[in-house]
């Protein structure tokens, strides 16, 4: 397994390079905000190092972290679908290095190069499905006191 971001891991090199022509390096300081709930989802990131927390704002309480993302993982998919608005907030837990991709250009590339677009969307769908599965399992509260746990 290479150290490529998972989204691009199995993408043919030609397509990967075409995508990367659109990307720029972008770093965030610890505590930095990548986006807020409801903001315009006009970009996404592939994390190179560091950790980003996805949170939900709850009045009267600290922002509730629902999941964190780290190296090789993709941050953001709200840019894929209208109305292109973030559903959660994202904050850097430590200094974070990323490749940042502009959403509009990537969507245009996908439209122009449908083969690349299909491959990219397949991978996005797989990542979304994977996170949905993980979320469902977390709903089970696997490690709860009454749970079935090897002793």
């Amino acid at each position: 397994m290479t150290a490529w971001p998972l989204l691009l891991d199995t993408l043919p090199q030609v397509q990967r390079e075409r995508l990367f022509t659109l990307a720029g390096e972008r770093d965030f300081p610890a505590g930095g905000t990548l986006f807020d709930e409801g903001g315009v989802a006009d970009r996404f990131w592939l994390i190179r190092s560091g950790e980003v927390a996805l949170d939900v704002y709850v009045p009267g309480r600290r922002a509730q972290v629902v999941e964190t993302l780290g190296p090789r993982q993709q941050l953001g998919w709200s840019w894929i679908f209208p109305p292109y608005r973030w559903h959660l907030g994202a904050r850097a837990l430590c200094p974070v290095r990323t490749w940042e991709f502009p959403a509009a250009e990537v969507r245009e590339l996908c439209t122009a190069d449908t083969e690349l677009g299909y491959e990219l969307m397949l991978r996005c769908a797989a990542l979304i499905a994977d996170r949905l599965q993980a979320t469902r399992l977390r709903l089970l509260d696997l490690y709860a006191p009454h749970g079935s746990v090897p002793s």
Partner: peptide, 21 residues
């Protein structure tokens, strides 16, 4: 962890998410 409390600065999510890292 599944349920981060105040002060937790580490990862949140299912253990398999760590496989990606």
């Amino acid at each position: 962890v599944d349920r981060p409390g105040p002060g937790w600065r580490g990862s949140v999510g299912l253990v398999t998410t760590l496989l990606d890292r």
